[in-house]
Computed example of a mutant assay.
Amino acid sequence: MTITQLYYVLAVAENQNFTKAAEKCFVTQPTLSMQIQKLEDELSIQIFDRSKKPIELTDVGNKIVTQARNIVNESYRIQDIVDQQKGYIGGEFKLGIIPTVMPTLLPMFLKNFIKKHPKVKLKIEELTTDEIISRIKDGHLDAAIAATPLEDQSIKERVLYYEPFVSYIPKNHKLHTNKKIDISELDVNDMLLLEDGHCFRDGVLNLCKALKTQPEEQFQLESGSIETLIKLSNEGLGMTLLPYLHTLDINEKEKDNLHYFKEPSPAREVSLIYHKSELKMQIIEALQDVILGVVRGAIAFQDVQIISPLASGKK
């Protein structure tokens, strides 16, 4: 049994196709198939059910893939040990960022990070929290930036900052004249929300302590972007809530529609998250240092109440 064979097994399990797996591993399909067959012969079991289209894992194959992923990840740790000993910060690093953080935080730190660590080849993807968790567990992401706490034992979290919620209330709205907003004044049925799948939406629902349960004939509007919510609110279609960093680029006219909450202000916790196996820690720590250096000047709120991104409610 070799680590290479286990690596090939993981590739086939992911792609459900021997040809595609071989392409991803940069080997010929006969070479990959032969190595997997040798492993199956050695273990006297079938890892894959080749009669199914696409190829499926057998019951024992599922268990082998879980263990193979652990072994392959641990093998990468040897290179990590060497890199850390040499003080080397470089190589490919796959980073996921949730959609409500990507457009505000990424421009703040990316240029600084590239300049400080030119040997790191960052590959950045905008992904939902569910996609991020899945890819971290599968080894397809080295780390991510997401709203926390996630309450997942396989994932570690390093808090980067606490980002307050800010109300965006158009002039024709009943709350527009209020200097500061109390959480009790919020009505989720009078609010423009992000679509399902966004953790900021879940945070808003947790803040309101209610689900959006309107009759079907009543007006409902949800959007995939915060920018669209602002435009819809400007048209008088309702109020919405924004993460604080999104308010920094709003034009002067729209700033009149921003209303802050009474303290403690509701806020989300934004963290750098990664697998408990702690691979590529030297890059994770370098990324954390650069981000902390830029956000300290942008967010100075102290008295905040953290709202959980999970459906279960507040922390």
Rank of each mutant, 00 (worst) to 15 (best):
K174Y: 01
N70C: 04
M281Y: 07
K231V: 11
A21E: 11
Q85G: 03
I71Y: 10
E252R: 10
K121E: 09
P30V: 10
K52G: 09
H259W: 00
N234S: 10
I145H: 08
G313I: 10
K209A: 14
K276S: 11
F93T: 05
F261E: 02
I71L: 14
K86Q: 11
Q302Y: 06
N206F: 08
Y274E: 02
I226A: 00
I114Q: 10
L237N: 06
D249T: 15
P170R: 01
K119T: 11
P266Q: 01
E56P: 11
I64Y: 14
A22E: 05
V72D: 05
V65N: 13
Y76V: 03
Q16H: 15
K137R: 03
I133R: 12
A21F: 14
I183Y: 01
L272I: 12
L193Y: 02
L279N: 05
N17E: 13
A147F: 05
D130R: 15
I169Q: 00
L248D: 05
D303A: 12
I250E: 09
L105Y: 02
H259F: 00
S312P: 06
L258V: 02
H176M: 00
I155R: 01
P30I: 12
E254Y: 11
E131I: 07
K119M: 13
N257C: 02
V82G: 02
F200G: 00
L150A: 06
T128F: 11
H259C: 00
V188W: 10
P118L: 07
V12S: 12
S277M: 07
H259S: 01
T240W: 01
L192I: 04
L186A: 02
Y76F: 04
Y8C: 12
I284D: 06
R201A: 00
K119I: 06
K116H: 14
N112C: 04
Q84L: 01
P30Q: 12
L122Q: 04
I169V: 09
H198T: 01
D138S: 06
T148A: 08
M281E: 06
T128C: 06
D49G: 13
M239N: 02
K111Y: 10
Q288P: 08
V60C: 14
K123G: 05
Q288R: 13
D152L: 06
S33G: 10
I114W: 07
T100S: 05
K255S: 13
E92C: 03
Q282F: 10
I124W: 03
I283N: 08
E74P: 00
L229F: 04
V72I: 15
L95T: 04
V159H: 01
R201L: 01
Q35K: 14
L32I: 13
Q5N: 09
N189K: 08
